[in-house]
């Protein structure tokens, strides 16, 4: 087991009376894609700024690639970090190619590799046009290209897909996945949970600067106990009331032809087996595991209740 790429131990960050991050422990490993989720103001951006060394923690210790961001040796670490800020902006009069060569030179990387990067993110054709003429999606792609300069070992992406259309979003995640496979640690923050559902190996949930959950998506599903929803469509005229064993599931009619059965993730196979054995003339069946959104809301509700 190699040492973690990013390590935070008991980190707090206070702005006056506001506790943006409160006593947080977190480890990110090599080749791991971690999603940082939480509503606006939960502390996601603050956490990323702490990892970048732009701000210092009030308490606790931060380490990226084995170096404290406050240490002067961190400049070398910055060469192998990539960052895409939320709402990335570039000087409007500069062309895409110029923007990228400015950042490549700051990172001491050969400008000659920029062409390939621009092609990779799909804006090579617009490279010689001023950024002013770019669409939101193109600017975001340029932002990603900038973050990928010099094959970073740690990639921090803050709300990277806000404002992207579904196709751009998909190609965006493809590139991120490709880097993840190469061994890069990827941290991506988002408040749109649905879209990162299949893009992360691990999900870290934040609320009011605290870590409320940390694990794979199936871990979180188990943790939340939010029911899986099975909807069955019945042919018209057929009324059906399954007599499921008590405590196994809850049934209710949604309308004339649709019935919803809610059961725990563990018992869903039993419910299905029962339905098939009962020889009901099923017209349709749909199984919806709890989405990340459901889990998130559920976990937050439980945190509030405690």
């Amino acid at each position: 087991m190699t040492s973690p790429s990013v390590r935070l131990v008991g980190v707090s960050k206070h702005y006056g009376t506001l506790h943006a991050v409160a006593g947080l422990d977190l480890e990110l490993h090599q080749a791991e894609r971690v999603a940082l989720v939480g509503h606006n103001g939960a502390g996601k951006s603050t956490l990323i700024k702490l990892m970048l060394g732009v701000i210092r923690p009030t308490e606790g210790h931060v380490e990226v690639l084995g170096v404290d961001p406050a240490h002067h040796a961190f400049a070398a670490v910055r060469m192998s970090m990539g960052f895409l800020p939320e709402n990335v902006v570039f000087p409007p009069s500069m062309t895409g190619a110029e923007v990228l060569s400015f950042y490549a030179r700051l990172k001491r990387q050969p400008v000659s590799r920029n062409r390939a990067l621009l092609e990779r993110v799909g804006i090579a054709a617009a490279a010689s046009r001023p950024v002013r003429t770019y669409s939101k999606g193109m600017r975001q792609r340029l932002g990603l290209a900038q973050a990928l300069i010099g094959e970073p070992r740690v990639l921090l992406l803050d709300e990277p897909t806000t404002g992207l259309d579904p196709a751009s979003r998909q190609s965006f995640y493809e590139i991120v996945a490709e880097f993840g496979q190469k061994g890069t640690t990827v941290l991506l923050s988002s408040h749109v949970l649905a879209e990162i559902e299949h893009q992360a190996d691990r999900v870290v949930m934040l609320d009011h600067g605290r870590k409320v959950a940390d694990g794979t998506l199936s871990d979180l599903r188990r943790l939340s106990g939010f029911p899986t929803c099975i909807r069955i469509g019945l042919p018209s005229g057929v009324r059906f009331h399954p007599e499921l064993p008590a405590g196994m599931a809850e049934c209710r009619d949604l309308d004339e032809r649709t019935m919803e059965i809610r059961c725990s993730d563990a018992s869903k196979l039993d419910v299905l087996r029962y339905l098939l054995d009962a020889a009901v003339p099923l017209a349709d069946i749909e199984i919806a595991p709890p989405s990340l959104d459901d889990i998130y809301v559920d976990i937050l509700r439980r945190m509030a209740a405690e």
């Binding site: 732009v54 070398a76 910055r78 970090m81 800020p85 990335v88 902006v89 950042y103 001491r108 900038q146």
Partner: peptide
């Protein structure tokens, strides 16, 4: 917001 990006560079 360009300063934050710049500060993330060496």
């Amino acid at each position: 917001g360009t300063m934050l990006l710049l500060l993330s560079y060496p």
